[in-house]
Design a protein around this nucleic acid. Structure first.
Lengths: 227, 227
DNA sequence: CAAGGTTTTTGAGAGAGCTTAACTTTGCAG
DNA sequence: CTGCAAAGTTAAGCTCTCTCAAAAACCTTG
């Protein structure tokens, strides 16, 4: 039996590892105790404790002071949780009409419901969705991410370049609501009009009609596919 | 914050109290520690412990050796859990195509998901169902059971009497599958052909075509409405 | 390359919920 | 009405996960 707590740690470590892939990674040091504690809003000693347990159970490698990495087994579990989380999010938004900023906490609970049959049926009934309401890829039953799209951050696009928003670097409620206020959603076409050296902000045209100025931080978290 | 464990105890006590209503009840003694321990498959000391906690929190009255009763507050919580449980069961059967004997364990997990909004939306989206897949009534948002049907156990019906199956006294997986094997489901019309003194069994006609002999125990757990 | 600051681990301990064992109360049968 | 079995409670102790405090390791910087 895997506890909810363990599932959460595995998911957290997985996501921190994913994040590192994006950045230039000196991944000799694994995911640090502190990073995990931060993300899980808990204390470092809890994390140390858990890392020992995870490595005992074969779900993570762990050497004192060296951080941690998930093993194949650990990654399997983490991906499975993520699959459930994202499928439930699709359900909440598409069937129950929740908004994209309202589903995280609920999916966080639903992801721990244990029933392989339930997940399979949910997946099939939803039509095997490939992405959740925030554009994050949903792994298939085998744990394979099927996202072949080459995404480019708005931050890295040149003046005149255009693309369609398909993903977000940050899916926090506050960021999602901030995007709402700009009427930016997945599928929105965004064209870079001008980039400002001053603060890294970007002037864009959204859906070929609204002129907006987005901060550097917003731009960095908008992931588009470009033609 | 109410723990899952507490929710389960409240639900359990509620259901034991409900059960007593059916029987002639010398309810001076409340629900006994032993009855709770049995139903929850735990030990009596765990129950004693929990009863003390429930009464501290104002959800149950409890005097040592005298058993327990839910308070109004406690009953409110229990009914709310039951509402969630039964709504999820409807979802699982009607939307995901589970069979009626497959949903209990899953609903047992889903019932603890906390989000009033979720429950309301689920309820509306399912069309405010009044009964779960086993015929048990689903309380409304205010906790009111809207089941006005006068149900009669097959056990108490006379030769020649007929009715439609609308409820079950036992909703265990094994009983449900046993009914499946007789092709008896909610909505099945049952006519008593003959009653046997010998073992209390009953010969019936189901849907006016299949002649079946049902044991006394089965008969007692079939609840019908009669014209 | 050492001193100091930061990060991590260890240790002690708390609370929830569980178990077994021992003790107490209850209430029924004779 | 008494004695005894059944039922219930208390006690002690286990696991899990968390916290705070203190010690240890690490690493950066002068």
């Amino acid at each position: 039996m895997i506890s909810t707590s363990i599932e959460n740690y595995l998911k957290c470590i997985y996501q921190l590892e994913e994040q590192l892939v994006g950045e230039r990674t000196d991944s000799t040091k694994g995911i640090t105790t502190g990073a995990i504690a931060d993300r899980m809003e808990t204390q470092a000693p809890s994390v140390s404790d858990m890392l020992r347990k995870l490595s005992e159970r074969g779900w993570a490698t762990y050497e004192k002071y060296q951080g941690t990495h998930l093993t194949f087994e650990g990654r399997k579990i983490a991906v499975d949780i993520l699959r459930k989380h994202r499928l439930w999010e699709v359900f909440l938004v598409e069937k129950l009409g929740f908004k994209w900023d309202e589903v995280h906490d609920i999916a966080e609970q639903l992801e721990h419901v244990v029933s392989e049959d339930l997940v399979d049926r949910l997946d099939a009934w939803l039509g095997h969705p490939q992405f959740d309401p925030h554009g994050d890829p949903i792994p298939d039953k085998k744990g394979v991410m099927r996202d072949k799209r080459k995404k480019k951050s708005l931050h890295d696009m040149q003046s005149g370049e255009a693309g369609v928003l398909v993903g977000l670097g940050d899916t926090s409620d506050t960021f999602l609501r901030y995007l709402d206020s700009f009427e930016i959603a997945l599928g929105t076409r965004i064209t870079v009009v001008e980039r400002f050296e001053f603060d890294g902000s970007v002037r864009v045209l959204s859906n070929d009609k609204d002129k907006l100025t987005l901060s550097s931080q917003v731009a960095a978290n908008l992931l588009l596919i470009t033609p």
